[in-house]
Simulated scan of single mutants.
Amino acid sequence: MTGPTTDPRTAHRAEGFPEQEQQQPGLTDRMDPRPDHGEESYRGAGRLVGRRALITGGDSGIGRAVAIAFAREGADVAIGYLPEEESDAASTLALVRAEDRRALALPGDLREEGWPTSIVERTIAEFGGLDLLVLNAAHQRERAGIEELPMDGFDRVMRTNLYAMVESVKAVVPHLAPGASIIVTASIQGFDPKAALVDYAMTKAAQVAFVEAMATELGEKGIRVNAVAPGPIWTPLIPATGWPDKLPSFGQDTPLGRAGQPAEVAPAYVYLASDAASYVSGAVLPVTGGKAL
């Protein structure tokens, strides 16, 4: 006998969020309300037992939810994060260790050439190999218009969202065995770009092209490459984007009528990382509350 179904419109907070603002990169403890990463709700089923994962941007938001889910599915987890996010990272690593899984902290800035390679190599040295690479770290800011787009800000977005992704994959491929999986956090912005996020949206469209190209190249090695494209998800990146007046209506324009929570995105990563997705590569899995890509 099955239990009662859950109405997706009210499964999580249905209303918008109070006006608030943070400096980048944003911290969980300063959010009102705190996001749900699946701390109480996610139940593992042994889908990733014995696997070793590296998650960039793994300290908070979607990255934390994925770290929790992977650990509860049996994986060891390393997380990359900015030093300013140490408090969030410590909480995430504690949740991984609570599942009797190995946890590795990798603080640093992915914009620095060589650092993406370094965290790949350190994870392999600590865990004895790497099976799952989740490229989740990202940066976005609201832009007032193309004439006012700061080039140093543009550079930060490009280096965080694109340069680091490419260097990470370049570094990891020689170490991956058949059955390994690379998953990129893309975005609905790559398909439905907003002018106020022009540079971020550009990177997300480029990530989709990269995933499709890498799926073609790496398929012959037995390595799958996919992306998850979230819609409006309540993470620290949102109050740190610079649009406090938009938070009361954040996510209200989706067919389901609300923003999503990180806990609702993590199962997509588990699926793509698991053997259940053994014939899935080059795919972009939308988690958008019903918005079409």
Rank of each mutant, 00 (worst) to 15 (best):
D199I: 12
V280I: 14
G114M: 11
I182M: 04
P244H: 09
R122L: 09
P8C: 02
G290E: 06
D29V: 14
A125D: 15
D155Q: 13
I146L: 15
M214S: 04
I68N: 09
I55Q: 05
A65V: 08
L272E: 03
F210M: 14
G26H: 10
P25F: 06
D253L: 00
T216G: 06
L132Q: 04
D59V: 01
A45S: 12
V208F: 07
G257M: 01
V208H: 05
H175V: 03
D245I: 01
A65W: 07
A144C: 11
E73N: 10
A89I: 05
I62W: 02
G44Q: 09
D155K: 11
S41M: 01
G179M: 10
I62R: 05
A138K: 02
V96E: 05
D29T: 14
I238Q: 05
I124H: 13
P236N: 06
E142Y: 12
E217S: 07
K194Q: 13
Y271W: 12
A65Q: 10
Q24W: 14
P230L: 02
V173C: 03
G57K: 05
Q252E: 00
P35F: 01
G74F: 09
G222N: 07
R156V: 10
A240M: 03
I62A: 07
I119V: 14
D155R: 15
A45E: 12
A65F: 06
T185Q: 05
G58S: 02
E126P: 08
Y279V: 11
L272Q: 03
E121I: 04
R47V: 06
S181W: 02
S60Q: 10
E147A: 15
P83K: 04
A180H: 02
P174T: 03
Y163N: 09
L247Q: 01
A206W: 11
M1I: 12
I124G: 11
A201S: 15
S278H: 14
A276Q: 15
P262D: 00
D36W: 01
